[in-house]
Structure formats: structure tokens, C-alpha cells
């Protein structure tokens, strides 16, 4: 059996994708661990893999007038060093794993893994990122929260590849990112929290709040955010318990080997409260 294909270009990759059932393999930092068996043996996968990490078409960052297009196979290090990368993304990337992992791990891989603890996801949700999926017939653009369906589940079809990520350009005055990890570096997230806000004339013009690792997918609520927009600090202070309670129904953490549901829930709400009371105004 063929264990891996290495296409020359995106076109060939999409053809392979159409012809065979294959596992797209970008940086491989997660797949190589998932498939591992014993030192000295190649990892095992149920299907052949399709190497795409080397494809030039998937490795560009392009700044357009209203948005930034990030190729799915850009490594996390490359993005960290890219001058056009929004600050909020850089902050998340800076806390991502270790230099050696960031050097081969890709943003597309982190998205398609759809891990609840995926460290690029809270910021991508918060900045209204969408993903461009391509097959041999064409492309479709899907907002990230519709792309990720659950733990390890996405709407990526068997014949598609994640081509790029589109990030609308928008500046924020406040970025409050907290990765509560198992340790201070090279850690997996127990909780991650991102709050973004833009203030104008004492009123909240825009606000984005997302939580990672506390539910099957990133928690973000446009409905709650809308309630906060156009409001003053005083008003927000008054409704904090209500806001916390609303998020509380969305935050559905679990007990696992890294933390427990109780901690995840309480601390998520504490981070939220800290952001709303201390950080934004």
C-alpha cells in the first residue's frame, strides 16, 4: 500500500484528494504522534497521507485592502515573524508549544485538527476568520465557527483541502489573552481566554470574547457581544453577573488529565470578569 503521496503542486494534491481517500499531512506534528507505535517503526495510519506542507501555493501571506490571506501551510514561526500578522494572533502564537514545534506546525493543521485546546482557534474565532476550502471544481469560503463541528470534526470534504484563512482587518485597543497552561512554556491549554475591545468616546464600539479548551469547540457568542456594544463601563459593571451567567451556560468543560471541569468553568468566568472590569475600560 502506498503510505504517502507527495504532490508537486496544489493541482496535483487536489487530484489525489479526488481520486483517493487520503489524510492531508501538513507539518505532521500531531499526526506523527497520533500514529506512533514503537521507536524505529513508521507511524501507522488507516489511510495513506498526502504531504502538502511543502506546497508553495499554501505558504503565502497576502495583505489585501480589507483582509489578510494566510496560506494554510504557513508554519506558526513564519506567521510569528510576519510583519502583517495582527497582534492578537501573534500573542497566541507566541505561547504556542515550543520553537521546534512552531517551526513545522502549520496554522491549517491546527485548525483542521479541531482540538478543543487548539491554540490558534480562540483568536481565529474572535477575529471572524473564515477558511477557504478548495477542490478540483472550485472553492468555498466558510466562517471558522461553521467549519469546526466538534472535537476533531470539521466540514472539510474528502476531496477538499484547506487552502487559506481569511482574516478581516480590524484594529483593537485592548487585547487580553490568557493561556492557562499546564506549565509556563511548551504547554497544553487548560483554558484559554481572549478578549478584544475597541473603545470610542467611552463606549464600547466593538468587543470580541472567546474561550478555548472549555467546550468541544471554541465558545464565542455574538449575541452576548452585541449586548455589550455601544455600552458604558458603568452599565457593563452592572450586568456582569448576567453576562457571566449567560457564558456559563455555553462553557461546558470536562475533567481530564490536565485539569478539572470545576476549575475550567470558574476560572473562565473569572478571566471574563477580569477582562470586563479591569482590562477594557
Amino acid at each position: 500500500m502506498v503510505s504517502a503521496y507527495r504532490p508537486e503542486n496544489l493541482k496535483e494534491a487536489l487530484l489525489r484528494r479526488k481520486e483517493f481517500r487520503v489524510i492531508p499531512f501538513a507539518g505532521g506534528t500531531d499526526l506523527m504522534v497520533k500514529g506512533r507505535r514503537w521507536s524505529g517503526l513508521a507511524p501507522h495510519f488507516e489511510l495513506p497521507v498526502l504531504f502538502i506542507g511543502h506546497l508553495g501555493e499554501l505558504k503565502n501571506v497576502e495583505l489585501e485592502q480589507n483582509c489578510l490571506r494566510i496560506g494554510s501551510c504557513c508554519t506558526l514561526s513564519y506567521l510569528l515573524e510576519n510583519e502583517n500578522m495582527p497582534q492578537a494572533i501573534k500573542i497566541a502564537l507566541w505561547m504556542f508549544a515550543s520553537p521546534a514545534i512552531r517551526n513545522i506546525g502549520t496554522i491549517g493543521g491546527n485548525i483542521c485538527n479541531a482540538s478543543p485546546a487548539g491554540d490558534t482557534l480562540p483568536v481565529l474565532y474572535a477575529v471572524n476568520a473564515s477558511v477557504v476550502l478548495k477542490n478540483t471544481n472550485g472553492i468555498r469560503e466558510v466562517p471558522i465557527e461553521q467549519f469546526i463541528k466538534g472535537v476533531g470534526k470539521t466540514v472539510l470534504q474528502d476531496d477538499e483541502l484547506l487552502k487559506e484563512i481569511i482574516i478581516p482587518i480590524k484594529s483593537f485597543d485592548t487585547i487580553y489573552y490568557r493561556k492557562v497552561g499546564t506549565r509556563k512554556a511548551n504547554a497544553l491549554s487548560k483554558i484559554s481566554f481572549l478578549g478584544l475591545a475597541k473603545i470610542k468616546n467611552g463606549l464600547i464600539e466593538d468587543i470580541r470574547i472567546s474561550f478555548g479548551a472549555v467546550a468541544p469547540t471554541v465558545v464565542r457568542s455574538m449575541e452576548i457581544e452585541d449586548r455589550l456594544k455601544g455600552k458604558t463601563k458603568k452599565y457593563i459593571k452592572q450586568i456582569i453577573p448576567e453576562i457571566c451567567s449567560q457564558y456559563s451556560t455555553l462553557i461546558k468543560p470536562i475533567d481530564d488529565q490536565r485539569s478539572n471541569a470545576y476549575y475550567r468553568k470558574i476560572v473562565s468566568l473569572r478571566l471574563l470578569k477580569h477582562f470586563l472590569t479591569k482590562d477594557i475600560l
Binding site: P241, S248, T249, P253, A261, Y262, K265, I266, R270
Partner: peptide
């Protein structure tokens, strides 16, 4: 934020939350 006995926030606990804010 006061501790919750259950991850699902109950009504009384939200009231407590209000008090401390």
C-alpha cells in the same frame, strides 16, 4: 467569583456572584 458546587451555575450562585461584583 464564588465557587460553584456544580459546573452548571445555579440561580443562587449567580446571586452570590452579583454580591461580590
Amino acid at each position: 467569583v464564588p465557587p460553584l458546587r456544580d459546573p452548571e451555575v445555579s440561580g443562587t450562585e449567580i446571586a452570590e456572584l452579583k454580591e461580590t461584583s
